[in-house]
Amino acid sequence: MTDVAELVSRNADFVAEEFLTAPGLTINPTGNMMIVGCVDPRVDPSHVLGLRRGEAAVIRNVGGRITPATLRTMQMLGKVGQAHADGRAEGPWNLVILHHTDCGMLDLAPFDGLLAEYFEVSPDALAAKSVSDPYGSVRVDVDIIRQEVRSSDFLVSGAVYDVSTGTVEVVVPPTAVPVA
């Protein structure tokens, strides 16, 4: 079992080996990127995608899904970014939705009430969420972003990580979000 003392010891190593070697990080990601991914410990988006510290903001939740709560979190982070606009890198903002194979969401499929509450929908609307198919669910979530986010400087893409091979497949290439 990993305990808090072990974590504090690892932190000391982090400070000595990494923290002091990356000065000048800002609250805005240097890569103008946000990743939404699953909490599954096999699928750490920073590690799987080779992100450097400070390169992307990472939101993790059950299934890596775009839920009303995720949208609210993104909205709050957008306000933080606006408050620090002088530290934002030039270019479009990139949102990558990363789902994965063998997700625990499959185990939740029989629990309609729980899933309906999570997605803040009625149980009869769950089929449209594609809970049992990571390729379908990433398309659903990209569509939600395209409907809910209105910015001329925003790209969204969707990918699936295969936990058995370690590879990432782009399912929805980077697409500009329509501004209505």
Rank of each mutant, 00 (worst) to 15 (best):
F119Q: 10
R150D: 11
L20M: 14
L155K: 04
F19N: 11
G31E: 11
G37D: 08
S151P: 10
M105K: 09
G31R: 14
E18P: 00
E169Y: 09
G91R: 15
D44M: 04
T167Y: 03
G166R: 15
T73F: 02
T175Q: 06
H47T: 07
V170Y: 00
A125K: 14
A116C: 07
T167F: 02
R53S: 08
D13E: 11
S151K: 05
A83E: 03
S122I: 00
V131I: 15
S164D: 11
V8E: 08
T67W: 07
E18S: 11
G158L: 09
M33Y: 00
E169M: 09
S46W: 01
N28W: 02
T67P: 13
S164I: 00
M34Q: 12
A85E: 03
S157Q: 05
A22L: 15
I27N: 01
V177A: 13
V168K: 14
G81D: 02
M33A: 02
R150M: 08
P123G: 01
P123E: 02
T101F: 02
L108H: 09
A128D: 15
V160I: 04
P29C: 10
A56E: 01
A116N: 04
R72C: 04
Q75P: 00
F111C: 12
L49A: 04
Q75E: 13
V15M: 06
R88S: 01
G50I: 00
D143I: 03
E18G: 05
T70C: 15
V131H: 03
V170D: 00
F119P: 01
G166A: 14
E90G: 10
Y135S: 11
P173A: 07
R53I: 08
A57D: 10
M33L: 13
C103G: 08
A89M: 08
G113M: 04
P110V: 06
Q75F: 09
E148Y: 04
R52G: 13
I145P: 02
D102Y: 07
A127S: 14
L51F: 03
V43M: 12
N94S: 14
A180V: 09
V160T: 00
D162K: 03
D3T: 09
T2M: 15
V160N: 06
A69W: 07
G158C: 04
P174Q: 08
N11G: 02
V160K: 05
D107F: 06
R139K: 13
V58K: 05
T26M: 02
T70E: 10
L108S: 11
V58R: 05
T73W: 01
L25K: 07
S9G: 15
H99Q: 06
D3P: 02
F111G: 14
G104W: 07
L7V: 05
T26P: 03
H100C: 12
D162L: 03
S9D: 15
V171S: 02
G37Q: 10
I97V: 11
P68C: 10
G104N: 03
Q147K: 14
R42W: 07
R10T: 06
R146S: 09
M1K: 09
T175V: 11
G104K: 07
D133Y: 06
G91H: 12
A12K: 13
R88M: 03
G63M: 09
P134V: 12
A5Y: 01
P134D: 09
N61R: 05
P173M: 05
R10S: 08
A125S: 04
S132D: 15
V131R: 07
I97A: 01
K79P: 00
G91F: 12
